[in-house]
Design a protein around this nucleic acid. Structure first.
Length: 108
DNA sequence: AAGGTGACCGGCC
DNA sequence: TGGCCGGCCACCT
């Protein structure tokens, strides 16, 4: 967590997200030890957006809202990917968020 | 080198 | 009850 870049850390956590599960920025930030810097997680996501190994579509805000949906493709691509994994999305909001929510600090 | 920005979160009015 | 504001840390220009 120290030798690697902050982004790599975020990517590592996001990659650990199981299929059909989602997590929040705060959870990732907290897992990294920088809970107060949830913004940095979103920043890393912005960079991860160009990467393929990072399922950023599984990362949503604490409200379960697809905040970065517009960032993904400018369309409903993010929602399509989540629905493809069995996650129900209504009005850009993850349904049963508490059920599909994955806690990195618990898994890691 | 310094300033500005950002897919957030939490607290306060 | 809901909306506004500040804070935080790292990357980019």
């Amino acid at each position: 967590m120290a030798d690697v870049n902050f982004f790599e850390c975020v990517y590592a956590v996001v990659r650990q997200i199981p299929y059909g599960r989602v997590t929040s920025f705060g959870a990732i930030a907290k897992a990294l030890g920088t809970a107060r810097s949830a913004r940095m997680v979103g920043w890393a996501m912005n960079a991860s957006h160009k990467l393929e190994d990072v399922p950023a579509h599984r990362v949503v805000n604490r409200n379960g809202l697809l905040t970065g949906k517009l960032h993904f493709d400018g369309t409903n691509l993010m929602q399509q990917l989540l629905e493809n994994e069995g996650i129900k999305i209504i009005d850009n909001q993850v349904q049963d968020f508490d059920t599909v929510f994955w806690r990195p600090e618990v898994q890691i």
